[in-house]
Design a protein around this nucleic acid. Sequence first.
DNA 1: TGCCCGATTAACT
DNA 2: GTTAATCGGGCAA
Length: 212
Amino acid sequence: MKGRGLAHYPVSVQGAGLRQERGRILGRRFFARDVHQVARDLIGATLLYKGAGGHIVEVEAYHHTDPAAHSYGGRTERNAVMFGPPGHAYVYRSYGIHWCLNFVCEEEGSASAVLIRALEPTQGLAAMRRRRRLKDERLLCSGPGRLCQSLGITRAHNGLALDEPPFQVFARTSRMDIVTGPRIGISKAAERPWRYGLKGSPFLSRPFRASG
DNA sequence: TGCCCGATTAACT
DNA sequence: GTTAATCGGGCAA
């Protein structure tokens, strides 16, 4: 069955979530690696902003050699943070409405980043529900715009280091079952399977086709 | 300056 | 399945 959104996932999957897990703090060294490796390793990691957030279950990789990346056409005022050192937040306005959060990777000038697309909420649920005016936990952080709204992330956070307050990123503590597929909402280089997700998670922004 | 369009979402049919 | 909402970046003129 196809279905968009989350409704087709069995409710029982919720009990198989990642609650409780939280490893070491991830800093610049973690992000200063190949963007695809970082993307994979971020699945199951914990992202907190002022104590609210949860486990990362879906990301996408972007690289400056990639026509779909903001950095593809060279450095501009908007994407300047992408060209800076790894381990920093790149936040941009999407469709004139939403904010989207990226983690800068590789090395200075590489202009690669991982888009954070979905979290399994675990911390600060009440604050997130208040900001989203929503009760359904599944819809709290299931999308790049949604999670920024839940956490309260805006342009003001563009360029902030990820290993300093108000951000905290913790490593995962166990092996993850990772699936891949085409990235969402792009027209260029749409065939590249640079979207990574936690297999079977009910908190994905959209399901992955089959497995891969 | 003006115009087009997008790494989205929610509310529709 | 479709579309409106909404606005800043990037580029042409």
